[in-house]
Amino acid sequence: MAATESVRAGGRGLRADALRNRQRLVAAARQIFEEQGLDAPLDEVAERAGVGAGTLYRRFPTRAELVEAAFEDELRRVTAIAEEALRCEDPWTGFSTYVERLCGAMAADRGLSDLFTVRLPNSQVASALCDRQSAALAKLVRRAQEAGALRADFVPEDVFLFLLANAGVAQVTRCAAPHAWRRLVAFLLASCGPDHTEPLPAAPTPLQTERALLGNAETKGLGSCPGEGAGPNRA
C-alpha cells in the first residue's frame, strides 16, 4: 500500500523518471516493512522497486526518511483514530476502542507495529502528528477518569506499555495464533477498571518514554547520524 500523500509531497520538482523511481521505492518499502518490520534490509527495497541501491540512497539518504515516506498516510490515519475516539459519546467506549484499534493495526502490519514503538528523528511530519495524537490521548484518559470509568492512576504513558506488550505478542503469534493479541488487549483493558485500586509500580515518565522511543529507533537503524546510509542495509 503506497503512501500517496507523501509521494505527492516529496515528489515535487522531480523529473518524470525520478518521480516514478520514488513512487516505486515508497511502494516497495511499504510492502517490505509491512512484511519484515522497519529494520528490513534496504537492498530488498531497491530490488523489489527495480532500481539500483544508489538510486534509493539518492532519494532517501536515511532509513528514517524512507520510513516517513512509506507510512505518512498511516500516521495520519492513526492520529484520526484518537480524534475520532474523542467524539464518542461514552468516554470508556472511546478510550477502549482507541486502544483496540491501535493494537489491531499493529497485529495486521509488522511495520506499523514497529512504528508505534519508535520516534522518527528529525521528522517534522511525524512529530506534528505525534503531538496531535498525544493531545487527543491525554483528553481520552482524562474524560474516562472524570466519568469514573478508568482507574485514577492511569497515565497516557501506560498506553505505550500496552503497545510494547502488544507488539511482542503480535510478532511471536502472527502465524501460529493471529488472534492472540485480542486476548492480551482484553486483559489489559480489564485491568483499567476503576474498581482496581491496588497501588501500582511507578509509570515511566514522559521523558523516559521519549528516550525509550528514540533508543528503539536507533536499534532499528532509524538514528539521525550523518552517513548512516552508506551500507547496503542501512539508509
Rank of each mutant, 00 (worst) to 15 (best):
E5P: 02
V67Q: 13
E65Q: 15
M1F: 04
A107I: 02
D90C: 12
P41D: 03
T197K: 10
P121V: 14
L102E: 01
R182G: 00
S224W: 12
T93M: 07
S113R: 11
L189C: 06
C103E: 02
E218H: 10
E89G: 07
L161T: 08
N21G: 05
R30P: 00
E89L: 09
E218T: 04
R77V: 07
L56K: 09
R182Y: 03
K220Q: 11
L140H: 03
S123V: 13
S123W: 09
A105C: 09
A212T: 12
P204H: 03
Q171D: 14
E35D: 13
V26W: 02
R20Y: 07
R8V: 10
C103Q: 02
R48G: 06
E5W: 14
Q171T: 15
E65A: 15
A108D: 13
L163A: 07
R12M: 01
G52C: 03
A18K: 11
G10W: 05
F95C: 02
I32C: 02
S6R: 11
S134M: 13
R110H: 13
D109P: 00
A147L: 08
L102W: 03
P204A: 11
D109Y: 09
E72Y: 06
V172K: 08
R30C: 00
R24H: 04
A27Y: 02
R24W: 04
E198H: 11
V78W: 04
T173M: 10
H179I: 07
A152E: 12
N233M: 08
G104F: 02
W181G: 02
I81Y: 15
V7W: 05
R143C: 01
T219S: 13
L189K: 10
V26N: 01
A217I: 03
G229V: 01
E35S: 12
L66I: 07
F60C: 07
T93W: 01
V155T: 11
L112Y: 12
E74K: 13
A147W: 05
R20A: 15
Q124D: 15
A126S: 14
L213W: 11
A176W: 13
K139Y: 05
F162E: 10
R24P: 00
L25E: 06
G37D: 08
L222G: 06
A49L: 05
T4E: 12
L38P: 11
A203H: 14
E198S: 11
E74W: 04
L164C: 10
E146K: 11
A3Q: 01
R151H: 03
G52M: 03
S134I: 05
G54K: 12
S224K: 12
T62L: 12
L112I: 00
V118E: 04
G221S: 06
L129Y: 05
S191C: 09
I32Q: 02
R77D: 15
